[in-house]
Design a protein around this nucleic acid. Sequence first.
DNA 1: CGATCGTTTGATATTGATCAACTCAAGTGG
DNA 2: CCACTTGAGTTGATCAATATCAAACGATCG
Lengths: 236, 236
Amino acid sequence: MPSPAAAIAQKAYAHPMTAPRWGDEAESRSPIDVVARLGIVASYARNAEIFGEDQAADHLYIVLSGAVRICKLLGDGRRQIETFCLAGDVFGWEMEPRHRFSAEAVSECKVVRIKRTILFSRAADDAELAHALWALTASELGRAQSHLLVLGRKTAQERVATFLLDMAARAGSGQGTSGIEVTLPMSRQDIADFLGLTIETVSRTLTHLEEISAIALPSSRRVVLRDGAALRRLNS
Amino acid sequence: MPSPAAAIAQKAYAHPMTAPRWGDEAESRSPIDVVARLGIVASYARNAEIFGEDQAADHLYIVLSGAVRICKLLGDGRRQIETFCLAGDVFGWEMEPRHRFSAEAVSECKVVRIKRTILFSRAADDAELAHALWALTASELGRAQSHLLVLGRKTAQERVATFLLDMAARAGSGQGTSGIEVTLPMSRQDIADFLGLTIETVSRTLTHLEEISAIALPSSRRVVLRDGAALRRLNS
DNA sequence: CGATCGTTTGATATTGATCAACTCAAGTGG
DNA sequence: CCACTTGAGTTGATCAATATCAAACGATCG
């Protein structure tokens, strides 16, 4: 079964004879090239705003490369990052006419924009597309609910461990001899705002995990998960 | 526009000629009686489990009376309540075949059960129903995302204030002379597990809000919102 | 009337936040 | 090529918010 993102991209742009396929092939070839042909591709510089809170929600976005953060702000500047979107992830899709959060480029990134109206009208008589859009919302909900448990009830160590395992599973980086290596696209501040901690606590916790040799930190943005079992133990 | 719950109840059981209507009428008459005729009504005692984590998800539920808590547990017993469902709310609706959380009766409560298979097959060729189901998921997502901000970045006072305002908006209780009165169906422990706090902190915070006369506590389960503005200020 | 459960209140401990200094790597311009 | 700057990250000392432990209180029920 193709991913929701693949199904949506296909539906939105498919021509009877020349419909590009994405999904099955995406794993083996380069999904980026395939999707880049489909729609309007936009690039954003590090920290650029893709859309802001309360702005009109008239596009859906699919990340081609780089990473995007979805966030909410409190009046005094406190920030909560709801999720990070990596290549293949969809964001900006909402029922209401206005965005309830903002989206910013974590790193230099490329995204495809698909008009909301196109999807909306097609979904009305295309059950498969409607299902894909719903599946998308449902998986977002699942992710949010798991994160509620993290923010509400887990300790700093557990939060960081959960985050690292999650990133490893998603970015699915190289299996080195001494563990899975993950390259984090986001800053410590981003991680802190995602996990409901401060930048100092994130830093200290990473250092501590290194001390107990659960992880290694070849550089600040690269993490090697040495002892997955230990991390998973911190995950309950 | 009828509520998602109303649309679903109608779709699932509508007969061409005798389709009961719920939604528009629900506000003025008693929605409970109307829905009670529609499907299988089940009653649960205080603290009874309606379904458990990882159990097969083959029904969707609509609360008729009382309240239900949706929760997740950590291995060592720590609990996070994702949301409380009050009369008219829908729960148990998921994409995956198994529930990712459990549902328990907060108080003596009545719910209608609708078979998942019925909804699923009808949604395939009924765009309106599909839309209602999707809208439901989307509004759950919105609620979860707001709660992420609460759990990740708000102080105990702000959490409690947000909770009280939210309950007042949902339960929409009586406008007394000295403020809006809300009757909380859940215990302090439930509130604590919802807000990511301890029972003692919830209690102390309520006492403090009473001291600054933002609220009054005629009894432990009844709260009068005296100074809505003060509470909203704590909401950022 | 005593038992029980939920809640409140008090004293103390702990986690993570805050404030501050320092390190390190990556530019940048002379 | 090398000071100088800048931004990100780390580390340390201290503080504050909330958790924990413990006791008292107050309704409800048999």
